Simulated assay, not measured.
Amino acid sequence: MSADRKDDHIRLAAGQQDDPVRRRGYDDVEIIHHALAGIDRDRVDLSVAVGPWTFPAPFYINGMTGGTDTALAINRALAAAAARTGIPMASGSVGIALDHPEAASSFTVIRDENPTGLVFANIGAGRSVDDAKRAVDLLSADGLQLHLNSVQETVMPEGSREFSSWLGLIEDIVAGLDVPVIVKEVGFGLSAATLGRLRDAGVRIADVAGSGGTDFAKIENDRRGGGHDDYSYLNGYGSSAVQCLLDARTEDFVGPDSAPDFTVLASGGVRHPFDVVKALALGARAVGVAGTFLKVALDEGPDGMVTALETWQARLGEMMAMLGAQTPGALEHTDLLIRGESGEFARLRGLDPATLAVRSREAR
């Protein structure tokens, strides 16, 4: 059942990437162009510090899959490209390998193909400290992604509905592991209040992982087969990465108790390097990409993935030079117009989006 479910996830997730009308929060973000703001491309430094690591560029391959022969081929392509480019990579959830050791090779191929690169293991938030340690050991991982997926579990026919222990388990895992922990959603977003609870539990890196990309509620509902057992009313549920990054600026998170060393990452529906630029401008330290790279890995293999990763690095450098941003962090001085649903979200959450439209003036 688990292996069949994993292959269903790959098929349905890949199909969602072809939806031309899906709304993305990044489309609500407009960068005000200042035609004389640019700098020389060779002054741009793409590298960024995330926890104890330095990423060569402000994006990474986010957790996707594992547990089947199809997933093994995808992870081999992704890991081989990560090794050749230095881009960090997270695995899909290794829970299936912890429960069924025969599935482990579809995950360990990541480290086999990328023996010295930056690799993150991934498990669900309902797992124990011992499971977390086993996940890290399986991949000789540099860090652990701990994913929150209560919406997916709710719609999943065989899912768990026991969520009250998650925060305590997260706190135990953060304290019990020798590697950093990155807590992430799976596509429904982390609110400012949730970021605050994670911060108070000792977490120092979180990926808001908003809606607009792979919709796991829709995937699990499609597996149900419709009829009276339908959950289609939850399709599109959650907050986009843009909304989450805006929310992270509100008092629910950035109040007097906010940890200065807390790092916010973003993912969810990232289609191209310009979406990365917008997320960085909204305060993300780095940006995870999954569904877009899944299609490349499936259709073009490792060589296509290398080309894609190198192209994304080149385009990011060029756009940062155009915008006058010498580093990814400098993009937080760009002037942004937040329109549409994201602008309304910001206002309803107590944030005046107009403050983001004059940041370059304040930086002078």
Rank of each mutant, 00 (worst) to 15 (best):
D335W: 01
G329Q: 12
L246I: 11
I123C: 08
D303G: 10
N235H: 15
A209M: 03
T65V: 08
G63R: 04
A209V: 04
N149G: 09
Q313M: 13
P56R: 06
D112C: 00
P328T: 09
A37Y: 10
D4Q: 13
G268S: 11
D252G: 15
R199A: 15
T250S: 14
R84M: 08
L46M: 00
E113M: 15
D275M: 12
L46A: 00
V277D: 04
I182A: 07
P88Y: 02
V48C: 02
V208K: 00
S164T: 12
G187V: 07
V155P: 14
P328Y: 07
E341A: 15
G227W: 01
L294Y: 06
D28Y: 00
D178W: 09
Q326T: 13
G176Y: 05
I74M: 13
S164V: 10
G329C: 03
D27T: 11
I170E: 02
D261P: 11
S267H: 03
V276M: 07
T68N: 12
P273V: 09
G67L: 01
S105P: 08
R111E: 05
R199Y: 03
G213C: 06
L148K: 07
D257K: 15
G304R: 09
G238M: 03
A35P: 03
V276N: 09
A79G: 03
G269H: 05
D172E: 14
R11N: 13
Q17Y: 08
L177A: 11
S2A: 12
S342R: 05
R134T: 09
Q313E: 06
L144K: 02
V119Q: 05
H9L: 11
R134L: 12
A241T: 14
L12F: 15
V264Q: 04
S105A: 15
N122D: 00
I61D: 02
G304T: 09
I10G: 05
M156E: 14
N221S: 14
V109C: 10
N62H: 03
G117I: 08
A135N: 11
R23G: 10
D4M: 12
G117A: 06
D335A: 04
L195V: 00
R76C: 02
G238L: 04
Y26I: 09
D230N: 12
P157N: 10
L190F: 06
D27Y: 06
A330T: 11
V179W: 01
F262T: 09
T250Y: 07
V276W: 05
A79N: 04
D352A: 01
G288Y: 01
A354K: 13
A248L: 07
A14R: 14
